[in-house]
């Protein structure tokens, strides 16, 4: 039981990170109807920007950890958001009303370019950072196994919850959120009613990238390393999460993220670490056989 509780905690933390990335996939899909393959690499860029900002802040003599974290968070979100915006402008906007596969391949190309860019600019080796946030609590101890909840885990989960609350408010209560929902339903009609579609789509990418940057920073804090290749694996996992939850559905993305995080952790804990990804992908396939539009996706009604 103690072991299980520990895995549960680990799974939820991992799932939160996946969920934050998955929201970016699902938002873009909802509005533009395309898979933003470069999103995983945006997450990776977020991790790198966070790392570099952190190094600079430490070297100029900042020592108060909360201030460092806050500054790193802000810089990472802002700069990664600009990456998201640029990617949309360069690779997707010219293909907005094109053939469906063209933007997808353009996105795959962008993904390759971004990961190779990070590799060339920052080197291929893994970048380790010393633990920034340390300490934690022992929740309970049973038969010699102590269930730990570290401070960093608390930070990850709380940050995710706060961002989710903000994000839900943004989508459901603000002008931008209304515009986004309108564009999701019908871009032409939204444009006729005075919604600036280009701007709304840009903002979608910006918000998605900012959330991915947060995920990147959390990843850096939690695992203590970044590398240029992490975007691919995390991206595929998060995309799997988005699809599992039902692509286009925001609660679905979070639910999918948590499911993938839990499946991965539990499988590693009880079966084999090597096959954890195989388990996650297999469960995705099994779920889609029975629910072809994911857990919370709207069932597709075939108009005849």
């Amino acid at each position: 039981m103690a072991y299980f509780s520990q895995q549960l905690i680990n799974g939820v933390v991992l799932g939160s990170i996946y969920g934050l990335i998955a929201i970016g996939y699902t938002m873009v899909y909802g509005i533009v109807g395309m898979i933003n393959f470069a999103h995983g690499d945006i997450f990776m860029i977020g991790g790198f920007v966070a790392l570099i900002t952190f190094l600079i802040l430490v070297s100029i003599g900042l020592t108060f950890v909360p201030v460092i974290l806050l500054l790193v968070l802000l810089v990472a979100m802002a700069m990664t958001a600009l990456y998201g915006w640029s990617v949309e402008r360069i690779a997707y906007r010219p293909l907005r009303h094109s053939f469906r596969l063209a933007p997808m391949l353009s996105a795959i190309g962008m993904s390759f370019a971004l990961s190779n860019f990070a590799q060339v600019a920052q080197g291929a080796r893994v970048k380790p950072v010393p633990p920034i946030v340390t300490g934690g609590y022992t929740l309970f101890e049973r038969s010699g196994f102590a269930v730990q909840l570290s401070n960093i885990q608390i930070i990850v989960v709380i940050t995710t919850l706060v961002l989710l609350a903000l994000f839900t408010y943004l989508v459901s209560r603000t002008r931008l959120g209304r515009d986004m929902r309108a564009c999701e339903q019908d871009q032409t009609m939204a444009a006729l009613l005075g919604v600036d579609v280009d701007r709304t789509i840009s903002m979608t990418f910006v918000i998605g990238a900012a959330l991915a940057a947060v995920a990147g920073m959390m990843y850096l804090l939690y695992y203590g390393l970044v590398d240029f290749f992490m975007g691919f694996v995390a991206g595929i996992k998060a995309f799997t999460a988005a699809v599992l939850g039902g692509i286009g559905s925001l609660p679905g993305a979070m639910l999918g993220g948590l499911s993938i995080g839990l499946i991965e952790t539990m499988w590693s804990a009880y079966f084999s670490v090597e096959y954890k990804d195989v388990a996650a992908f297999s469960i995705l396939i099994v779920v889609l056989i029975f629910l072809p539009t994911g857990l919370l996706g709207r069932p597709e009604v075939e108009k005849v």
Partner: peptide, 15 residues
């Protein structure tokens, strides 16, 4: 730089 060029080429060709 191969993948960088390759990726950008894919974007340009698609556009």
């Amino acid at each position: 730089y191969r993948m960088l060029v390759f990726g950008l080429a894919m974007v340009v060709l698609m556009v």
